[in-house]
Nucleic acid binder design. Structure first.
Lengths: 159, 159
DNA sequence: TGGGATATCATGGGCGTCAATGGGAATAAC
DNA sequence: GTTATTCCCATTGACGCCCATGATATCCCA
């Protein structure tokens, strides 16, 4: 299945429209989703977005909870209640609602970031900071994983 | 399965195109991947590149993590968000995006280095320095391994 | 084993297409 | 009636397609 990869930064024009990157539109089309399912990221100043796979993942997540539990209410509110389905016009452009733009701090440019089954939309400078942190965290993780590797044979044998 | 082996240095022409080595293209074709999946190496001034095997490895890595965890977010950002799928034209050439060229310090030549399931792209002089260091590390490792080898039979027997 | 022919690969250039951007008009919604 | 959204079109630069050329590697024959 095609995935959302890479990242693009596009401008918001005077009418509030922004071009959805052509490769993301292609993935959405193959996914069979009309428009973009979108909600404020739970723990980042960004917007989570995608098509059917994102919707299915949310349905599965919410479906694992007891229907009348507090968790259910909270998660359903966060993932359904705050979301929008953005329309994409025939030129491949969409308009971000004011509420979503405010959450992400987006003013005149949007960075689209592919994350495999979904993508995120960021204010460009916020994303650069986030990326630096993510890369550092992954490097730290690799060091942790590397330390556990038997590549240092003698250490492994000694243990 | 065919592997990426050997290394080649090709020029970037005035249009920013570079020939992907024919043997690498053959491996990609047999792998069934259309284009080249490519992202900045996390710990080297180089680009990691490959086909389905590389993509599958990344998908497995990211798929092991809980969808809304911090680790998932960081890994997906670092591996999907910084990557590009490079198209390869019918003459076997590709164009490296500016962002990837800058990460690797590539200006007018690229060294393609086969690493089995994937390959890397380097600025030629950076690769030479990297190779010298890697060869020195291998010598050091062999010394270590040689000390632990059962070629000295008595040590092995004693355990 | 050496030389010649052939095929393949890397390189260079021109032309057409595509994607992002900008703007206007019409329609729908408030 | 006003504003927002959708539809339609044009422009420009980047990229893909197509072709040619030279160098190198491989193959075949004497």
């Amino acid at each position: 299945m095609d995935q959302f990869v890479s990242r693009f930064t596009n401008r918001i024009d005077t009418k509030g429209r922004v071009s959805v990157p052509a490769s993301f539109r292609t993935v959405l089309a193959k996914d069979g989703y009309d428009g973009i399912y979108c909600y404020p990221s739970l723990d980042a100043p960004a917007l989570d977005a995608g098509g059917n796979r994102l919707v299915n993942k949310i349905t599965d997540l919410v479906g694992e909870l007891a229907p009348y539990s507090d968790e259910y209410d909270h998660l359903a509110t966060a993932l359904y209640g705050t979301s929008d389905i953005l329309s994409v016009d025939q030129d491949g452009r969409t308009i971000l609602p004011e509420r979503l733009r405010e959450h992400a701090g987006i003013t005149n440019q949007v960075t689209f970031v592919g994350l495999g089954d979904k993508f995120q939309m960021w204010e460009p400078s916020k994303f650069e900071a986030h990326l630096a942190e993510a890369q550092q965290r992954v490097r730290d993780l690799r060091k942790l994983l590397g330390a556990g590797r038997p590549s240092g044979g003698p250490e492994g044998t000694r243990e």
